[in-house]
């Protein structure tokens, strides 16, 4: 567990440190509701996510893994604590800055793909650039399309694509603006195992071959095994950290959590 003393004011650029954190959390806390009904979704989490790595966040339902991701991506506001994207503290930003941040520096992959049904695959992929008013880099576009195997699907609408294809389009959309980090929320949750495996290997390739940073939330141990590192969450706290995971090591980690807290699993 990372116990480095946090220096909140000092966030010097991580020059010269190749494994510098792309995303950091310091004392991050999120409380839902108030008074008696208050629920501590996230309790003073400190964590670093390395750039150029594929990290999975795991944990039982209600462990706070989704909340952590929302806060790290600037989708939700923290009750206290700080979150950084590179050297930018995002917990203090307003909606306009957050919108810009998401547009330029963050990519998202959703469980239910969330492609716009009226646009073709290609239009969906370049949408973030259009929103930013930026040009498409044809070489990068070509790289993504080739890597994700979408070359003959670009003119199709989402309704004409399989689930796996839709998710690959969503990954391309998340990567098109070369963001600092891509957040993937249960990217294989709506896919069969073959399509899911394909998507996961694409995510890994985008880290290994294209040099991107990916943070994935999942509850599937075999999906988490594709990552370089697995962070385990329970009761809103970091409960474990596995480097170079295998499905077995992840399962073992999870079992350790479950034995600690049985009723939580029945929450959802």
């Amino acid at each position: 567990m990372d116990s480095t003393t946090a220096t909140p004011s000092g966030h010097a650029p991580a020059s010269g440190a190749p494994a510098a954190a792309a995303v950091r959390a310091r004392g991050l806390r999120k409380v839902y509701g108030s008074g008696e009904a208050a629920v501590n979704a996230l309790a003073d989490v400190d964590i670093d996510f390395a750039a150029g790595a594929f990290t999975a966040i795991m944990g039982p339902s209600g462990s706070g893994k989704s909340t952590l991701m929302h806060l790290l991506a600037g989708l939700d506001s923290a009750t206290s604590g700080k979150a950084y994207l590179g050297s930018t503290e995002i917990t203090g930003l307003g909606d306009k800055e957050l919108t810009r941040l998401r547009r330029d520096r963050v990519g998202f992959v959703f469980q239910s793909f969330n492609l716009l049904p009226m646009f073709t695959a290609e239009q969906n992929i370049v949408l973030p650039l259009e929103l930013a008013g930026a040009r498409v880099d044809p070489a990068w576009m070509d790289t993504l399309v080739q890597t994700l195997g979408l070359a003959d699907r670009l003119t199709h609408r989402p309704s004409e694509l399989s689930g796996g294809q839709q998710q690959r389009v969503a990954i391309a959309r998340a990567l098109i603006a070369k963001p600092d980090v891509v957040f993937a929320d249960e990217p294989t949750g709506n896919l069969d195992s073959r399509a899911g495996a394909q998507v996961l290997s694409f995510l890994r390739r985008s880290v290994r071959e294209l040099g991107r940073t990916v943070i994935m939330v999942t509850h599937d141990p075999s999906a988490a095994a594709y990552a370089d590192r697995v962070v385990l969450l329970a009761d809103g706290r970091i409960a474990g950290d596995i480097t170079d995971p295998t499905p077995e090591s992840v399962l073992a980690g999870l079992d350790a959590l479950r034995s600690l807290d049985e009723p939580e699993a029945a929450m959802r």
């Binding site: 989708l75 306009k96 919108t99 998401r102 547009r103 998202f108 959703f110 973030p128 998340a174």
Partner: peptide, 8 residues
């Protein structure tokens, strides 16, 4: 989704 990918 649009807001998440950068629509103001």
């Amino acid at each position: 989704t649009l807001r998440a990918i950068g629509l103001s």
